[in-house]
Design a binder for these strands. Structure first.
Lengths: 342, 342
DNA sequence: CGTTAGCACTCATTAGTGTCGAGTGCTAAC
DNA sequence: GTTAGCACTCGACACTAATGAGTGCTAACG
């Protein structure tokens, strides 16, 4: 049996309705809808067919139908046309992202919030590996005796700053000249190649040797931070409580526990790196706890090559249309903001 | 009727038990406890007295007793002696706080996490007004064409950084000399007095005039940020789900909505500024939605005079003992870390 | 032959009922 | 003043019946 025009229409109507209400949808409901003009009885026949084809599930006899994962898959693959965000909304998002200082981390944090606000689902953003960014500038700013703020600027803007200990007796001017040397030596090297430059720099001795060593150590640590927990940022972590599928406390706790394990979360969300929006419905994401969730992800780019992932986690009946539009737009917006400094 | 020794003992036992189990406690439970050696019947008589005195409530006849708000009040005022944290634990907390770079905001963010981890309740930290901090150093770091990172260092360490636009044609050395001028002019002034220095600085014209104006504008904006939403930081915002009192979805949603309105939250948590731990039980915090919650707060100090608040929100039957110990310690630890640069 | 109305059937939901047991209050004895 | 005993209360839980939304099937209709 093949899906004809009307079956598509009915399936679409069922999915739309179920996304909004989370209640199994009956034949009457559909027949009342504009666009389909036949009686409930006819709809029932069609529904029966759709069920046989595996697109609908029936929680129990005499309940309405619920879209199956296969239906969602069909829906996102064929039935769905992404709608553009209104220019109003685009502006609101961009404003929000720009309002923060342009450091990678705070932009991402703020993006996670915006993403969750715009979609009403929980958002997850994985920060990119920063190794391929090229250092443009290193500068030390005095903070107190023997303490300085090290700012590393790359071609994607300010990537990291860290407070480090410096040898005694260095004043602001000393730190500045040291900064110049550091910048000279490190400029244009990718962050991940800094380790190789290490021995070169150490040979260039004198009083700043200790400082150089320490600075390099910090840079190395920062690079490794790419693999640590802080690079997965969750926005709207309690949004899911708004949805009836989680009114069971156990399911809610379950969901939460996934959010709390940043490692698992990173694996679940991390995408393949291209800019396309990818959708994993129910069991397609390989986490038993999330077998009734969908994960939608997109990518963003920092600098030339590094990519990060931004995503949404919600019930399988999520509003894919909306989510895809927002993710697509935000992926681009993030890339633009984080790669502004070409 | 007065409270004698034994009544105190029994009340304490009831509160302790209820804090742990959240189940109304019966006379048998108490009589089995060490420290009280009489039969359930006797306990019942005492309980009956305590109820009449307003220290216990009975959800319904033939349920156990539940401590009233008045009981909690008595408990925290008289029955409770704060236990010191184990040195092990103190170390763990301090490590965690120190592991981040020493910027005020990230320390606070990290503190909110630690606080929530250590107590198992939701934590709230209100950032201090930074106006009384004294500027020690201002430095501009080039980020890209016409873009610079402005770092403001105060006597409490790095307070704020922001990316600002600068006039065209300034290289790193130009920015450095401008930084020196800025530092010279602004050094030792409290952040809040910067506005007054404004006209002085503008008179000192030449090519950096525009930059100065802009820099000052940014500083001013940063100062005002003291009144904006980003200065209330919540840790463990979904912790409350672990407690049976919130297994009702509506209560949970209710609680969440309070957490989400940062303005209300600030008002609810903000303390009187002295370092004492203050406790508001149930209706004592003037929020109808939180009439079955307690809020425990302490203060921390940044620099000489600014104070911020750190607090815990949880069910009235919260583990006050533990919470007070942690808050007390963390208040001090935070103050130490944020005022390190004297 | 596709569409529709009618009707019997299913089953989750809800309200109502009965039982169980933890816990109390009271009374009388120690 | 303390304790044991006993009747009583009331939530929790299990079971039952009534309700109604929704289906599947069949027969009639255009």
């Amino acid at each position: 049996m093949q899906l004809d025009e009307r079956k598509y229409l009915i399936l679409q109507a069922i999915i739309d309705d179920y996304i909004n209400t989370a209640v199994p949808v009956g034949s009457r409901t559909i027949s009342r809808k504009a666009g389909v003009s036949c009686s409930p009885a006819t709809i029932r026949n069609e529904m029966s067919d759709l069920e046989e084809l595996g697109y609908l599930d029936q929680p129990h006899t005499s309940a309405g139908r619920v879209p199956s994962n296969k239906a969602y898959r069909l829906y996102v693959d064929h039935l769905l046309k992404a709608t553009k965000l209104s220019s109003d909304e685009r502006e609101r998002i961009q404003d929000h992202l720009l309002s923060r200082s342009k450091q990678v981390e705070s932009v991402i944090r703020s993006a996670a919030e915006v993403l969750s606000d715009a979609t009403k689902y929980t958002s997850v953003i994985v920060a990119p590996k920063l190794g391929t960014l090229r250092i443009r500038h290193v500068q030390l700013v005095p903070v107190a005796d023997r303490t300085a703020l090290m700012v590393i600027v790359t071609n994607a803007g300010i990537v990291k700053d860290a407070v480090i200990r410096v040898p005694d007796g260095l004043d602001a001017d000393d730190l500045y000249s040291i900064s110049r040397v550091l910048t000279q030596r490190l400029a244009d090297k990718p962050l991940e190649a800094v380790r190789q430059t290490f021995s070169d720099l150490l040979r260039n001795a004198d009083q700043s040797r200790k400082l150089l060593g320490e600075t390099l150590a910090v840079i190395e640590r920062k690079l490794e931070a790419g693999g640590d927990a802080s690079d997965v940022i969750v926005g709207g972590s309690s949004r899911f409580l708004e949805y009836p599928e989680y009114s069971d406390v156990n399911k809610a706790r379950n969901f939460l526990s996934v959010l709390e394990s940043r490692d698992r979360l990173r694996k679940l969300v991390s995408g393949n790196g291209d800019m396309e929006v990818t959708i994993r419905i129910g069991p397609e994401n390989h986490a038993p706890e999330l077998s009734d969730c969908s994960i939608v992800t997109a990518s963003y780019r920092v600098g030339d090559r590094s990519t990060g992932t931004l995503g949404i986690i919600g019930p399988t009946r999520m509003n894919y249309n909306r989510v895809i539009s927002v993710l697509d737009f935000m992926g681009r917006a993030l890339s633009d903001i984080l790669s502004e400094y070409k």
